[in-house]
Design a protein around this nucleic acid. Structure first.
Length: 733
DNA sequence: TAAACCGTTGTTTTT
DNA sequence: CAACGGTTTA
């Protein structure tokens, strides 16, 4: 019964896109090259299914990030006016486990441990067992465990498979780690997937319920799914066998996290009778960009050959530019972006990608200097900051009193006289079964505690009860009251106070957004969301700012103009990546790095810039760098190579650099004093004083995230552009 | 107990 | 150059 709306869903699709969208029952694999309309196919297919009788709540679509899920939900809703369940594997599992985890003898109030929580647990176990920290570094053991969890190998099997005493010991630590997490009623990221599989295995009726519920299962980015995710997808498609997997082998970039290309390459064996549709026409990029990226990726040997084609024009040439150092690189990129903005390109349509996060710094400085709007996409970094982690731990402990990790974190934060020895005795008293918090409650009976310690612990217990009694109108309100009652800010050391205030303020702001979006949400789901955020989730695509992000975060996005910076050997490809033993050979590790480069290039619609420097600062050291070997793999045609200025900064500004030299100050202790008004306002006309440059007047002030880019005309030293954060300004008394 | 000090160590990517 | 761990000191 194709309605006219159903017709319009496929009206503007090509033959092969239409084939994928309208395919009937049974497993379907869509191998979709970069820019071939993958997202379009998946959203249209959902719309098509809904128009052809599938009820809205019979669909589950899985994407890679929450951001992508929101976007897809929005698009489907725009097409057919119905909301469907679009989620990530981890959110899906977490939500499922909140309902079903009792089936495997666990409690639904579980805490989700992130990597740093897991590392703390491991550190404790390692110390407890007196293991040599050189052979048994927490990171190494974490890797050992995670590698096994990605392959659905439990501690017992790990122990069996262990070859040599070292792996045996690691397997023992793995077993202990599992026990500690169970005692704390905590799950790590991998557990979310594994426990879901456990539930499916141990309670077939639960699996059957979900199989009956989800008549259509769609999974995006299938090339980056790991074994547990593959098994979950396969379990869900159960009897109806309606699964749609979409992916591109050339964009597999998560081997180190357990991604298995086999999930995609052997799809037809895992899902017998599967239909395969291949999309090879690229609609996104100019012919130059497509040619360059295809030429490069063709160097991968472990690859099923695929030839993307386009009917587009050659377009602008790709620029490969070389610089003296990363600061020159930053200035040039900022200058180019400034030109693009001048030509009317929206800042939302320009992006900057790098291999590693720390590479953002010189670019942030350069952009700030020219007052160019930009946003460093690093959500996870925010949730990892100390203040946020502390407050989250308090909240977590309220939801899950057994969470020993959270308890350990907050019991003496801020300092309240409960030292390491006291904590140790409490832990000993809690023993195998009871939680640390139980020991806190019964501090009176704990042996070996001084009266002073006992009363300090009793005060902490009173505080905990007090926190639990808080009546709050929402999560933001709750956090606010929590900060008050714990004295979190007041007891912060003076120099960290401003920093902590800012972090707390931002966290409350985040919670307020949550309260507004999900008024019925509740604390547990807030914490869950906070635990499962990804970097790109925090990026506002409409913010009018150029996003800076890692190549990994860039997957699935597209922009008019793209800058891939730091294209140097040891960075891209990354040295550590080539040493990684997750890969079975250095060759395959190199190929993954090449795919990463490929992902970056293929994000660009019209303009692509690839930059590299001869020197860069690594760990405070100035180190030489060679052009990335990938740059030599680009074709001659459609690529122009330019050399940045060789001269020292400031000494002549040959090729279009801004004449006015700007000084970017370190964010701390700039020593700038505001002489007018309340001493904090950074508006034009306000007089300021600087220890080095004397007095001046603000000409222009542009907010840049948490900072301000401020142009100041100094009476004796001309115009400077300063990058200022609130704590940089010495308030006048 | 906690603050202050000092030396070592490490940095890839992230749900 | 940070961040963290371990030590010493008040």
């Amino acid at each position: 019964m194709p309605s006219s709306r159903a017709d319009s869903i496929i009206a503007d699709l090509t033959e092969s896109q239409r084939e994928a969208v309208t395919y009937g029952d049974g497993p379907l694999l869509v191998v979709a090259g970069a820019g071939s309309g993958k997202t379009r196919v998946i959203t249209r297919r959902i719309a098509w299914l809904l128009e052809h009788g599938t009820p809205a709540d019979g669909v589950v679509a899985v994407t890679f990030t929450n951001k992508a899920a929101d976007e897809m939900r929005r698009r489907v809703e725009a097409l057919v006016g119905t909301a469907v369940y679009v989620t990530t594997f981890h959110s899906f599992c977490s939500r499922l486990l909140r309902r079903e985890i009792s089936r495997i003898g666990r409690d639904q109030g579980f805490t989700i441990y992130d990597r740093s929580d897991s590392l703390r647990v491991l550190r404790r176990i390692i110390k407890q067992r007196d293991l040599d920290p050189a052979t048994f570094a927490p990171r190494d053991i974490m890797e050992f465990i995670s590698l096994r969890k990605d392959r659905v190998i439990g501690p017992a099997k790990a122990r069996e498979d262990a070859y040599g005493i070292e792996d045996q010991t690691k397997a023992d630590v793995y077993a202990a780690y599992e026990q500690v997490l169970a005692e704390s009623n905590a799950l790590d990221f991998d557990d979310l997937l594994l426990k879901t599989l456990d539930v499916f295995n141990r309670a077939p009726e639960v699996l059957q319920y979900y199989q009956d519920k989800y008549l259509q299962v769609l999974v995006d980015e299938y090339q980056d799914t790991n074994l547990p995710q593959h098994l979950i997808a396969r379990a869900l498609q159960g009897r109806h066998r309606n699964i749609t997997a979409v992916g591109d082998p050339d964009q597999m970039i998560y081997t180190w996290r357990g991604a298995r290309l086999e999930n995609l390459m052997e799809f037809e064996e895992d899902f017998p009778g599967a239909h395969v549709v291949t999309l090879e026409r690229n609609y996104r990029s100019t012919a130059n960009i497509l040619r360059a990226s295809s030429t490069c990726i063709r160097n991968n040997v472990f690859r099923r050959p695929k030839d993307l084609w386009t009917e587009r024009e050659d377009g602008a040439q790709i620029t490969v530019a070389q610089f003296r150092d990363s600061y020159a690189e930053g200035r040039w990129v900022a200058d180019k972006v400034s030109d693009l903005l001048g030509e009317g390109v929206s800042p939302n349509e320009i992006a900057l990608f790098y291999r590693t996060k720390f590479q953002s710094v010189p670019f942030e400085d350069a952009f700030a200097t020219l007052a160019l709007p930009h946003q460093v996409v690093d959500n996870v970094g925010f949730f990892d900051r100390r203040g946020v982690k502390d407050l989250r731990a308090y909240l977590q402990l309220m939801v899950n009193p057994r969470d020993n990790e959270a308890c350990l974190r907050v019991i003496n934060t801020p300092a309240r006289g409960i030292g390491a020895k006291t904590v140790e005795r409490l832990m000993a008293s809690a023993g195998e079964r009871g939680s640390l918090l139980t020991a806190v409650r019964r501090a009176e009976q704990v042996e070996g505690l001084s009266n002073r310690a006992k009363s300090a612990v009793a005060r902490f217990w009173a505080l905990y009860e007090d926190l639990n009694a808080i009546q709050a109108s929402g999560v933001a309100d709750l956090i606010g009251k929590l900060v008050d009652r714990t004295g979190y800010l007041e007891r912060q050391p003076a120099e960290e106070r401003a920093d902590a205030e800012e972090v707390v303020g931002q966290f409350i702001g985040y919670a307020r957004q949550y309260d507004e979006r999900t008024p019925e949400g509740g604390l547990m789901s807030f914490l869950e969301q906070a635990a499962l955020v990804s970097d790109v989730d925090g990026w506002n695509a409409q913010a009018g700012a150029v996003p800076f992000m890692t190549l990994h975060s860039a997957k699935g996005l597209e922009f008019d103009a793209v800058f891939v910076v730091g294209c140097e050997d040891d960075v891209l490809p990354h040295r550590r990546a080539l040493e990684d033993h997750v890969h079975d050979s250095e060759q395959s590790a190199l190929e993954e790095e090449r795919r990463l480069f490929y992902v970056g290039m293929t994000r660009a619609r019209h303009q692509l810039f690839l930059t590299h420097s001869d020197r860069r600062i690594v760990r405070g050291r100035d180190e030489p760098g060679m052009p990335s070997r990938f740059l030599y793999e680009l074709p001659e045609e459609g690529v122009v190579r330019v050399l940045g200025p060789r001269s020292k900064p400031g000494a002549g500004s040959a090729s279009g650099f801004r004449q006015e030299m700007a000084h970017v100050l370190k964010t701390k202790r700039s020593g700038l004093q505001v002489l007018d008004g309340d001493g904090t306002r950074l508006a034009p006309g306000v007089r300021v004083s600087h220890p080095q440059w004397g007095e001046g007047e603000i000409i222009e002030s542009t907010p840049l995230g948490t900072r301000h880019s401020v142009r100041v005309s100094f009476h004796d030293h001309g115009t400077m552009t300063l990058l200022l954060a609130a704590e940089d300004i010495d308030r006048q008394e």
